[in-house]
């Protein structure tokens, strides 16, 4: 029993890491624009396709696989960031002064567009991601650990720490926090608001791009609608942690992943996992309306 529990813990860590990478994009964009970027799940899906095509293009016997893996990761992150910045410039920027809801509806529209554009151009057949890395199974006593699993957890955690450092320590990070705190004042203080917003989109999506490649290595089936469910789950993770808070998003992602992994152990069918996850979400929001690590803002009258 303990073994199964430990094993599931590992699976939860793996899944949680991927969720966290996607949740970061939600939470960063929300923090800076107060916009729920509903297209983010589909940006993740796009990044999986970028990863897929890059992997196919690079895969040959001449190059060692780890190099292919790194190249794939880079290409996917770069292209995803590019797409996201393009979307931000074309669709969200004109709406900066419009009612917030219009931007949310636009984001929904962009999400639908990305899904269906992929569906229309690449077809509904799921693609299988080629195995970029040799999948070795290590045994730790009775526990089994795959190399992909270890890699995902390590890369994700490194990326998250890196991101946290960027937001907390660098000039860009400081500008981001300034813009998220007060856009108007930040621009008066000489912060290039538009550029910082684009940078935020780029970073958030690049991280999601890394998440996309890692995800498709672990669960190697890619289809145009995969972004919907994972996007929603990452979004919920961001909310549980307190949307707008980078560390909260990571915490929420791991909580949610553990819920997803452990539900089938307790309840008879895996179809209950949505039910359990959302009930957890509801309870968290009723007890702490701004999420676990969210800031409570005072209301001025």
């Amino acid at each position: 029993m303990i073994i199964i529990l430990m094993q599931q813990m590992l699976n939860g860590l793996q899944l949680g890491s991927v969720y966290a990478l996607i949740a970061l994009g939600y939470t960063m964009v929300y923090g800076i624009l107060r916009l729920i970027n509903f297209a983010h799940g589909d940006i993740f899906m796009i990044s999986c396709y970028f990863g897929f095509f890059a992997a196919i293009a690079f895969l040959s016997n001449a190059i060692p696989t780890w190099l292919t893996f790194i190249a794939t990761m880079m290409v996917s992150m770069l292209l995803t960031a590019l797409v996201a910045v393009l979307i931000e410039r074309v669709a969200y920027k004109p709406l900066r002064l419009a009612p917030r809801v219009s931007a949310v509806i636009t984001a929904l529209g962009i999400g639908l567009f990305l899904e269906n554009f992929t569906l229309a151009t690449l077809g509904p057949t799921p693609r299988g991601m080629p195995a970029l890395l040799p999948n070795v199974n290590y045994r730790l006593g009775a526990l089994s650990l795959s190399s992909v699993q270890i890699l995902i957890i390590i890369i994700s955690i490194v990326l998250m720490i890196l991101l946290d450092r960027v937001v907390q320590k660098t000039m860009t990070g400081m500008a981001m926090r300034a813009v998220s705190y007060d856009k108007a004042t930040a621009s008066v203080m000489g912060v290039p608001v538009d550029r910082i917003i684009s940078t935020t989109f780029a970073i958030g999506s690049a991280v999601a791009g890394a998440g996309g490649v890692l995800y498709s290595l672990a669960y190697p089936i890619i289809n145009p609608y995969m972004g919907v469910r994972i996007g929603w789950w990452a979004f919920i993770a961001a909310v549980i942690g307190g949307i707008g808070n980078v560390r909260g998003a990571m915490l929420g992602a791991y909580i949610l992943a553990f819920v997803e992994v452990f539900t089938p152990m307790v309840l008879p069918s895996s179809t209950y996992r949505d039910f359990v996850a959302f009930t957890v979400l509801l309870i968290v929001l009723v007890v702490r309306p701004t999420g676990l690590m969210g800031r409570v803002t005072a209301q001025k009258v």
Binding site: L95, S102, T106, I110, L112, F113, A120
Partner: peptide, 18 residues
């Protein structure tokens, strides 16, 4: 259809946010 529809929605939202 589902590619054209959302694009029209986005354009409408940009031109007439309300």
């Amino acid at each position: 259809r589902w590619v054209v529809g959302p694009i029209m929605l986005v354009i409408l939202m940009i031109c007439r946010p309300t």
